[in-house]
Simulated scan of single mutants.
Amino acid sequence: MAEQEKEMSFLDHVEELRWHLIRSTLAIFLFGIIAFVMKGFIFNTILFAPKDANFITYRFFCKVSQFFGTDGLCIDDIPFTFQSLAMAEQFSVHIWTSITVGFILAFPYLIYEVWKFISPGLHKTERKGAKSFIIISSFLFFLGVLFGYYVVTPLSVNFLGNYSVSDAVERNIKIGSYISLVRSSLLASGLIFELPIVIFFLSKMGLVTPSFLKKYRKHALVLVLVLSAIITPPDIISQIIVAIPILILYEVSIYISRVVEKRELKKSKKNA
């Protein structure tokens, strides 16, 4: 079976990839339909929740602030209202939100399709790790999405919702702008948390080594701070809160790269 897969022509690989993409698209579409039907729950209960001053994240930061004897992190209100300025804006937001939710929910299956496509090029022993690959990748992605929802999004909404250059400016936010911020926060965080998986495959291909990652740790720190500044409001506390888990993921990636390097050295010694 493996020999037949190796003998596949370029066009056969393209055809195989096409069917993987078709199945992945169908999975996103099916979950998207479910999200589209559950409009009230998706918007009112989930997406608009960070707009409420009683959101769990705000209450947590308030308790932390009070623990240190101050109310600096407590908020009473996020003073802006939603508005729709175009005829098709709400429908467009509904469609793209459904697609995004469909992508998030279908992620484990998408990872499965990715594995099915790359597995023919792996050794028999490596193919046995399919279940672990899917579980770990999905776990990291969902963990990142939760981090984006409970940390990145509230920090961004609170900061940007309260920011004002003048009292003469009314805070009427386009619904598309708000949803775009939430959507980008969730997806960006989810994909960033896939860093250990990316490092694993780069290490397998010999493109990254633990010594390389250690050597450029300081550069990575600067890059992480810049990345944190991009996906969070421009205040130090928010950037530090977001940077910490990313730095932890980087250290985990160094450990993973070290393990992969040791395994590859053992294989090369056995084959020698």
Rank of each mutant, 00 (worst) to 15 (best):
Q4V: 15
Q4N: 10
D12N: 14
E15K: 15
T25N: 05
I33A: 14
V37P: 09
K39F: 13
K39R: 12
I42N: 02
T45G: 11
L47S: 00
A49H: 10
K51A: 13
F55T: 07
F55L: 09
T57C: 06
S65Y: 12
F67N: 12
F68G: 08
L73A: 06
L73V: 07
I75V: 10
I75N: 03
T81H: 09
A86E: 14
A88H: 13
Q90P: 12
H94E: 00
I95G: 02
W96P: 02
W96F: 14
S98Q: 03
I104Q: 00
A106V: 04
L110V: 01
E113R: 06
I118T: 05
K124Q: 14
I136V: 11
S138K: 02
F139R: 08
L143W: 08
V145K: 01
F147H: 02
G148Q: 00
V151L: 09
T153L: 10
N162A: 08
V169H: 07
R171H: 13
K174G: 11
K174F: 07
G176T: 06
L186N: 00
S189Y: 05
S189W: 00
G190A: 04
L191W: 08
I192Y: 12
F193A: 04
F200R: 08
L207N: 10
V208A: 08
P210M: 06
A220S: 13
V224Y: 05
I231C: 14
I236K: 11
I237D: 04
S238G: 09
Q239N: 06
I241S: 03
I244P: 01
P245F: 05
L247M: 15
Y250N: 07
S253D: 03
I254Y: 01
Y255V: 11
Y255L: 11
R258H: 09
S268K: 14
K269W: 14
K270D: 08
N271W: 14
